[in-house]
Computed example of a mutant assay.
Amino acid sequence: MAFPTKVKIVEVGPRDGLQNEKETISAEVKIELVDRLTDAGFINIEAASFVSPKWVPQMATSTEVMAGITRKAGVIYSALTPNMKGFEGALAAKADEVVIFGAASEAFSQKNINCSIAESIERFRDVAQAAKQHNIRLRGSISCSFGCPYQGEVSPESVADVVRRLKDLGCDEIDIADTIGVGTPRHVQKVMERAAKEFPLAQLSGHFHDTYGQALANIYAAMEVGVSTFHSSVAGLGGCPYAKGATGNVSTEDVLYMMNGLGVETGIDLDKVVDAGQFISKHLGRKAVSRAGNAIAAKRAG
């Protein structure tokens, strides 16, 4: 596959990034963050999660956020939906895409949702059918595709198995996620090449956490085998409550800085993303985790 000249960046900061913050963030702040990201040019923003507030209190404002954002034509506003109740919430909130998820690691699946991988994916069949009936885009996400905090290594074959299951449910796009950030470039290429035997490469995306500082290298490696959709989080927000020590997703500012340097088209305004990153970091009372974002902000402050 040719190295992509254009990539799609899915911004996951408002959902995946903020969901683990301990301090409650108001719906107003989340709305402003999503609006700033829309204005920066993203065509896909993960904005909400319709999960039980008991499990993820930070996402209790999702209905309010989806109602308050200024939508732009052609932009996909996604919501995580773990079950039919979540799907109904997403449908009422007019989500353009619902996200279902499974793990490539049997141990992670058991610890995280108390059931096998096969059972966990089967539980989403109703959600998948409902999404199709309502013409809502369906995205599947596979966590622990490169390693697991409980079982260690995860084989490319295990990832391929979950890709097949999600394809069977009718997913339009499938995320290959490095939840704990242990992947390295060659490993990433092997997994992506194996996944591409089960599902069109153009509809696979890379979701890399930067725990071991490998995320940018992993994105570049995935691009070398033709992957052209990646997830990132403004200001490097996030982590995983079930994966000890896992840092946030790779920061959007760092990804955009690299893409700009490669001459790869994203359609996104880096300066506006830096502003959004500084805005949310200031609100959280800490420095952004993005190196490029902080460097650009410091240069501006002169």
Score class of each variant (00 low, 15 high):
Asn44Thr: 07
Met258Leu: 14
Ala288Phe: 14
Arg15Ile: 07
Gly102Trp: 02
Lys272Ala: 13
Gly181Ser: 11
Met59Trp: 10
Glu28Trp: 03
Ile100Gln: 00
Tyr242Ser: 02
Gln214Ile: 11
Glu119Cys: 07
Lys132Leu: 04
Ala202Leu: 12
Phe108Met: 08
Gly89His: 11
Val274Phe: 13
Leu169Gly: 08
Cys171Val: 00
Gly181Pro: 01
Ile76Asp: 05
Ala48Asn: 02
Gly248Arg: 08
Ile121Asn: 08
Gly152Glu: 06
Ser49Met: 04
Ser281Gln: 06
Thr61Ala: 12
Ala92His: 08
Ile180Thr: 03
Ile43Tyr: 07
Ala288Trp: 14
Leu169Asp: 07
Met259Lys: 07
Asp271Lys: 03
Ala221Thr: 07
Gln214Cys: 15
Pro4Arg: 03
Ser105Pro: 01
Ile43Thr: 13
Lys85Glu: 12
Met84Ile: 15
Val7Gln: 00
Gly293Lys: 05
Leu201Asp: 08
Ser26Pro: 02
Val29Pro: 04
Ser105Asn: 04
Phe199Tyr: 04
Ala104Tyr: 00
Cys240Val: 04
Asn44Phe: 04
Pro185Val: 08
Ile31Ser: 12
Pro241Gly: 07
Gln189Thr: 03
Gly245Cys: 12
Arg164Thr: 06
Ile176Leu: 02
Val65Ile: 10
Lys111Trp: 03
Gly226Cys: 05
Lys282Ala: 10
Val182Gln: 12
Glu97Asn: 12
Ala276Leu: 07
Gly267Leu: 11
Ala295Pro: 04
Val10Phe: 08
Glu265Cys: 08
Val65Leu: 06
Leu91Ser: 13
Leu169Ile: 09
Thr38Ala: 15
Val289Asn: 14
Asn114Met: 04
Lys287Trp: 10
Val162Arg: 03
Ile113Thr: 13
Tyr257Pro: 11
Lys111Tyr: 11
Ala246Cys: 05
Ala222Cys: 05
Ser78Leu: 00
Leu237Thr: 06
Glu32Asp: 14
Val274Asn: 11
Gly261Asp: 09
Val227Cys: 14
Gly261Phe: 10
Ala221Leu: 12
Ser290Val: 03
Asn20Met: 14
Gly181Thr: 01
Phe101Pro: 05
